[in-house]
């Protein structure tokens, strides 16, 4: 039997909240954080960190059904 697809929620944080919003998407099984980054390209001058369920995750982190993904821009402060 094929693995079912996984459903994950993606949100932009900080000033990416408006740009990305909050949405639920379906990804193929075995998807990783790096696959999310490809789907939501941001400005090349910007570094982002991806949080999975509020914990920082590396590009190779495997995603699971129901995960909450936050795309957080790293930007100097005031």
């Amino acid at each position: 039997m094929r693995n079912p697809s996984i459903s994950i929620t993606i949100e932009g944080a900080g000033f990416l909240r408006k740009k990305i919003g909050t949405r639920t998407i379906v990804m193929p099984p075995g998807s990783r954080v790096s696959d999310i980054k490809k789907q939501f390209p941001v400005d090349t001058d910007l570094r982002v960190i991806v949080f999975v369920n509020r914990k920082k995750a590396s590009d190779s982190h495997a995603l699971h059904n129901g995960d909450l993904i936050s795309i957080v821009p790293i930007f100097f402060g005031g």
């Binding site: 900080g14 000033f15 909240r17 920082k56 957080v72 821009p73």
Partner: peptide, 10 residues
């Protein structure tokens, strides 16, 4: 303060 929320996450 444009990225206060982003700073909060980290």
């Amino acid at each position: 303060a444009g990225n206060l929320e982003g700073h909060m996450y980290t």
